[in-house]
Simulated assay, not measured.
Amino acid sequence: MKSIDIDQIDLQLLDALQQDASQSNQSLAERFNISAPTCLRRVRRLREAGWIEREVAILSTERVGALLTAVIEVSLDRQDAAALDAFEARVTPDDAVQQCYRVSPGPDFVLIATVRDMPGYQALAQRLFTIDANVRNVKAFFSLKRAKFTSRVPLPISPLAPSSGAASSRS
């Protein structure tokens, strides 16, 4: 990935795409008062430079059905680089694991996992924690209610620039 200079319009485009990546190029161009070809060129440049990793659809958990979200703290017996890398390499490919963080202080990892039910969690725990002799402690917390979920990353947008979040929070 190449390094590029980012200006306020690039930051505004990134922020707007975080809110709704399905916006048309024409709509984005009009919103930020730039030509459609310029907008397309900027978004392509941001994608090629790695500012936009991927675009995904965020599904409605109500439509998908009952799901159980677990916040899981994992402590390992050995914390050398090889042991940490090995644990991470084993848990990250698992479809139930949505997020994996190495943390400090406290546990070595915090995982966010989504499963259908408690038997699904037990299967996850067996797969990822029980068969690993290096896992010392696992502490799981189960979500009763999701009060907020976002994938948006805060960006340093100038206060003088039109805010993409202000209009959407009022609707």
Rank of each mutant, 00 (worst) to 15 (best):
A83S: 15
T69Q: 07
A167D: 13
Q126C: 08
D77A: 13
E48L: 14
P93H: 04
S168D: 07
V74H: 06
C39Q: 06
I72S: 08
S27G: 15
P105R: 01
I34E: 00
A81Y: 10
S163K: 05
A82Y: 09
K145P: 08
S27N: 15
I58W: 05
K139P: 01
I112N: 07
V138W: 04
D20Q: 08
K148M: 09
L111N: 00
R41P: 08
Q12T: 07
Q12W: 03
P93W: 05
D94V: 09
Q26Y: 09
T114H: 11
L17Q: 03
T38Q: 11
L68G: 08
V56P: 01
A36D: 14
A123R: 12
I157A: 07
Q19E: 15
D85Q: 11
R78W: 10
F32K: 06
S60N: 09
G120F: 02
L84Q: 05
A57E: 13
V103W: 09
P93V: 03
V138K: 00
T114P: 03
V97E: 04
E55F: 12
R78G: 13
V97R: 01
S75A: 14
S104G: 04
D77R: 13
K2S: 15
D5F: 10
L84D: 06
A21V: 07
Q12L: 15
D5S: 14
A86P: 03
K148E: 00
V138Y: 04
T114E: 14
D132R: 01
A86I: 04
K145D: 15
G50W: 05
T114I: 10
M118I: 12
D5M: 09
D7W: 08
N137M: 13
A167F: 02
V153A: 06
P37W: 02
